[in-house]
Design a protein around this nucleic acid. Sequence first.
DNA 1: GGCTAAGTCGAGGGTGCCCTCGAATTTTGT
DNA 2: ACAAAATTCGAGGGCACCCTCGACTTAGCC
Lengths: 188, 188
Amino acid sequence: MVTASRPLRADAARNREKLLTAAAHLFAERGLDVPLEHIARRAEVSIGTLYKHFPTREDFVAAIFPERLAALDDIGAKALADPDPWHAFAGYLDDLYALQAQDRGLNDVLARDLPDAPEIVSACHRGAGHAEILITRAVEAGVLRPDYSIADMATLTRAMAQVIRDSPEEWQRFLSIYVEGLKVNATG
Amino acid sequence: MVTASRPLRADAARNREKLLTAAAHLFAERGLDVPLEHIARRAEVSIGTLYKHFPTREDFVAAIFPERLAALDDIGAKALADPDPWHAFAGYLDDLYALQAQDRGLNDVLARDLPDAPEIVSACHRGAGHAEILITRAVEAGVLRPDYSIADMATLTRAMAQVIRDSPEEWQRFLSIYVEGLKVNATG
DNA sequence: GGCTAAGTCGAGGGTGCCCTCGAATTTTGT
DNA sequence: ACAAAATTCGAGGGCACCCTCGACTTAGCC
């Protein structure tokens, strides 16, 4: 399936690179919805060339985010290595949203249901896998409310995306209140 | 300032009414960003006539929402009448977001900083006044975490707006978790 | 009925974004 | 150095939305 197409011509490779870094910057600064024309301009390349290399916005997303989503695995690994189930779980949330807060584009990727690139989907699945384990552990240790689920985390993620967007200074406080509500001793 | 302009001609009054109800429905169903052309179409009135009556989108908002925001006062009054400070506070939040969940347009109005119509602003101020009292009461009763503020509620409102938008079945659960985190016994 | 002010209409101009396609240009292999 | 292949370019067509304006219609008054 994947045709091992002959290498790109020198100028094409250069332009592809320029487009990629332009898109990476603009996504991070302005989110996933930047006009493609802005990307082309910033890359100092014509709009036609942009479409030659990346026929759809999704192609940009697929090229840029899998690498960034690797950070998710790091965060997951770090949390899984933590022997304290509560600290592991809460730390995971902190790290996850800190990541989102740094990158408007990533924030969009994780908040939307949309992005369909298979590599993105699988990265999210891996992330959900880690989260699942962290949740189970914390529940079994009796420190996390027993009905907590991945679905709740998905909802939280969309809410956090919004909070990060409109008040980037307050997301930590907001999260800490929510997390407080998850502690098992709080139930009742 | 307010010129007591002579009464509208019959057809004009009729059209104004049609526009208002069309806008009210569309705002509630689709949110504040519906194309004005859709409102005109639904009202069976030309786009020119729409602009005659409501030169800006804000004019629609200003005409429609003050009435709906009256519900805020009811909710506030109900909560203030509740002798249990915790129940009053938590009930206020429940009622407020239930209101938002029923009306996509209202959800937008309360989530955005934008809408500048003076009547909207004052309704929100009144709402904030009630909330302030409820917070103070609950804090003084020792049931609400003492550092909780109106600013936190504003953040919550934006977060809830998002949750309501993309998972209308889950906002109650989400809110209940958050509120759990606010109980004073939960701190620590 | 007829006059006039008030109101209605919708074509059309403006903007911003999307995407395509053929002509012009550049790289690369010989 | 040259031709073929690959790539670039950007004008321009499409679409959705915004808003205006002058020609037409109608309500309301005598």
